[in-house]
Design a binder for these strands. Structure first.
Length: 518
RNA sequence: GGCAGGUUAGUGUAACGGUCAGCACGCAAGGUUUUCAUCCUUGUAUCACGGGUUCAAAUCCCGUACCUGUCGCCA
């Protein structure tokens, strides 16, 4: 049984299966309702294809996904493309690609199909029309002839409720229609209703209908507004739990009233906190300035991380961490392993902020622990893009493995190969190191010892270096920096033994001698 | 402005009347060490503020401040 505590409610109500006469919306109990009535839990993620997806959206989808899986339910994706101006096919394609890339399984969608389709609002216009008729018949909507096709920038007109057009004399309405004046349909909000519902994260919510304006349901262009589309579609698609962003919390009153107007059974609402630090402008700007191998300083849309070579698991994992955390406090986890544990009531009420350094930390972890063959294959395109030719198979794998530490994105790998495939390019810090007083002496002795040894193996390198250190009384940086600098051009890098393995004795000797010459 | 929601270390969070307020990232200091890598140790919060209720409050109540959302023919 889902871990929602509901014993108290049940006791008070005495029975389950009947709706509270006070119009109280069924609450968290609905999970039980659903089971007892043999209903399937159905949730949905309903993006509008007007921009890129980012962590904020993604985590809404992730929580929906977890909830669906936990209850053996269905995860629906619906495209809300009622904004004719801003909706773009390419954004919809991107949404699809993102999900496929991230490995989040969707059950019903425009591209997966399903028995409650179509799943694109622009293809459901006839349904909205029919629903509008129903409200017209019940006299619950009215035409509004006011000017003002939404100019968001325009000064906000004083909220007037009810809307003046609601009381337009019938003859005026007739005349305006005859004149062909454009109009939209508004909902005639019942003045005295009180909206109450229980939110899975917020608890009891109560809104007076008198605070709800006579909102638009059908726009002048015939498209439904968000409020209208959402309610009609969620109802028809048999959505049982609406898990969405907190910004819709106050809108829920509108939706509640619409459900009532249609006589549809209401879903359980669950408003999750928002994610701050995700400024659309900045994200788009950062996306325009992507540079392979360079970690973005600011958050970017999912497509950006995809391009840079972040691993999808890291993204999914981190998005689940935004407003939720596992009980065992282990933050790196596989989404599917958390299905049982997930419970909306554990979601944070406060907003959460995207922390790019923590995200990078997680990503590094994923890359460090990734399957080496898979990582190698993932990396190939990035070598091409960087115009760096990777070495052949065995060496390639070896280097990927040796150089993957502290790598948050795959595109960081190719540049690290450079010291191993071309000649030495002395970096500034490398040059400086070689100029240090004892540097040449260290290199000289190493060369001598290496030359003396006939059958030199990679694992012999360490002992030799140690001997040199002891004999010269040098250790730490003074010992290792010059060696590494002459071999790869910079004092920092992977373990010493790797060099002999990769380059072989002759090449290492050549580089060490060259270092002495610097 | 009305309405709604939020406020625990720099960040993400735990705790749901009784713990020296726990964990993680970051940062700082120290140790190990072949590195500004790894690993280990330590430090980093008088729980926004002010009042209450209580033997006891981060936890309950009220007020204030600040942040956010909504009040669009955007979703």
């Amino acid at each position: 049984m889902p871990g929602v505590s509901q014993g108290q409610d049940d006791r008070r109500l005495g029975c389950v299966g009947r709706f509270d006469v006070r119009l109280r919306h069924r609450s968290a109990r609905s999970e039980r309702f659903a089971r007892e009535k043999g209903m399937t839990v159905r949730v949905r993620y309903a993006p509008s294809p007007t921009g890129y997806q980012h962590f904020g959206n993604l985590r809404t989808a992730v929580f929906n996904y977890l909830f669906a899986r936990k209850h053996g339910g269905v995860f629906v994706l619906r495209i809300e493309d009622t904004d004719r101006e801003r909706s773009k096919k390419e954004y919809e394609d991107l949404i699809r690609e993102d999900f496929e890339w991230l490995g989040i399984a969707i059950d019903e969608s425009p591209w997966h199909g399903g028995e409650y389709g179509p799943y694109r609002q622009s293809e459901r216009l006839h349904i909205y029309k029919e629903h509008l008729e129903r409200l017209v018949k019940k006299d619950m909507v009215f035409r509004c002839f006011c000017e003002g096709e939404g100019e968001p920038e325009a000064e906000k007109k004083q909220v007037v409720s009810p809307d003046p057009c609601r009381f337009l004399p019938a003859e005026d309405v007739k005349r305006f229609e005859k004149e062909g004046r454009p109009f939209c349909w508004r909902f005639a909000t019942p003045r005295d209703a009180i909206v109450r519902f229980k939110d899975l994260v917020r608890g009891n919510v109560r809104v007076k209908a008198s605070e709800v304006t006579d909102f638009v349901v059908i726009k002048q262009d015939g498209m439904p507004t968000y409020h209208f589309g959402v309610v009609v579609d969620d109802a028809l698609m048999k959505i049982t739990h609406v898990i969405r962003g907190r910004d819709h919390l106050t809108n829920t009153a509108n939706h509640w009233l619409l459900y009532d107007a249609f006589g549809y059974e209401k879903p359980t609402w669950c408003h999750i906190s928002r994610t701050s630090k995700l400024k659309k402008r900045e994200m788009l700007d950062a996306l325009d300035h992507l540079e392979m191998g360079v970690r973005p300083k600011k958050p970017i849309p999912v497509i950006g991380y995809r391009k840079l070579g972040y691993l999808p698991e890291a993204i999914v994992n981190y998005s689940a961490l935004l407003g939720w955390h596992p009980r065992d406090e282990i933050e790196k986890f596989n989404l599917d392993d958390k299905i049982e544990e997930f419970d909306p009531k554990d979601l944070t009420k406060g907003d959460s902020a995207f922390d790019i350094s923590k995200f990078n930390w997680l990503s590094e972890k994923y890359i460090k622990e990734a399957d080496i063959d898979r990582l190698s294959e993932l990396a190939r395109p990035f070598f091409e893009a960087a115009d760096i030719t990777p070495p052949e198979d065995k060496l390639y794998l070896r280097l990927i493995d040796a150089l993957r530490g502290k790598c948050a994105m795959v595109s960081e790998l190719p540049p690290r190969f450079v010291p191993f495939i071309g000649g030495v390019k002395l970096a500034e810090d490398g040059r400086k190191t070689l100029q240090e007083p004892g540097a040449k002496k260290v290199l000289g002795l190493i060369v001598n010892k290496m030359e003396a040894k006939t059958d030199l193996k990679p694992e012999d390198f360490d002992p030799i270096i140690r001997e040199v250190g002891e004999e010269l009384g040098v250790k730490g940086k003074n010992l290792f920096f010059p060696i590494r600098s002459s071999i790869i051009g910079t004092p920092h890098g992977p373990m010493m033994s790797l060099y002999l393995e990769i380059f072989g004795k002759d090449e290492v000797l050549r580089r060490l001698r060259a270092g002495i010459g610097e």
